[in-house]
Amino acid sequence: MTVPTIQTAGLTKGYGDICALKPLDLQVAEGEWLSVMGHSGSGKSTLMNLVGGLDRPSGGSLSVGGQDLSALSEDGLARFRREFVGIIFQQHHLVPYLSAVENVMLSQYFHSVPDEAEARLALERVGLGHRLKNRPGELSGGEQQRVCIARAIINSPKLLLGDEPTGNLDHKSTVMVLELLKELRAEDRFTVVLVTHNEEVAAWGDRTIYLDDGVLVREERLRS
């Protein structure tokens, strides 16, 4: 019996009067691929931010990888993020004035020390060996998202978070990106939490949970 990667009990988050997340109990096993579905404003992004250490819970307990996140300081959370989590955003969020390989190296720099050779390898692994020196503006949406994936996995995180990672992509690119994620997970054995409102994307996971108005309304196990 291994410790679950994510374990929450009565986790809540409120912004002022608005309650974005009602008490939530959730467990995600190590190596699991969890899809989180819901409309906008259903609290799925809030959940992802809490799990990724980008935001602090208002109540309840939240432990990720055995660490109690609410006990960590500001810099402790930063450390947690760089060593434990890889995040992929819908809008990519690449640094516009850095090339693809430099964007990956930036992540290495915050984590420890930059290593250009390793960053190149990571980009080759996501199939961008030929676009190392290009700036984000010179890459297509799918390519940019692949840079993001390379950046997210470069520090060998235990947990990969995706916030609508395919939201801006066409069908073909979406499939490519998800295929890539699946391959990488098979090799590196990290846990995946993908937030999406697309059933098709959610179907790639092992399990899907449905959030509505901050409440877990349904859970569906696809494979184990």
Partner: peptide, 16 residues
């Protein structure tokens, strides 16, 4: 600000 937010999301601490 978005660039700095990104750096923070990637795990840059205040010192960095």
């Amino acid at each position: 600000s978005s660039e700095i937010a990104l750096m923070k999301a990637m795990g840059a601490d205040r010192f960095q």
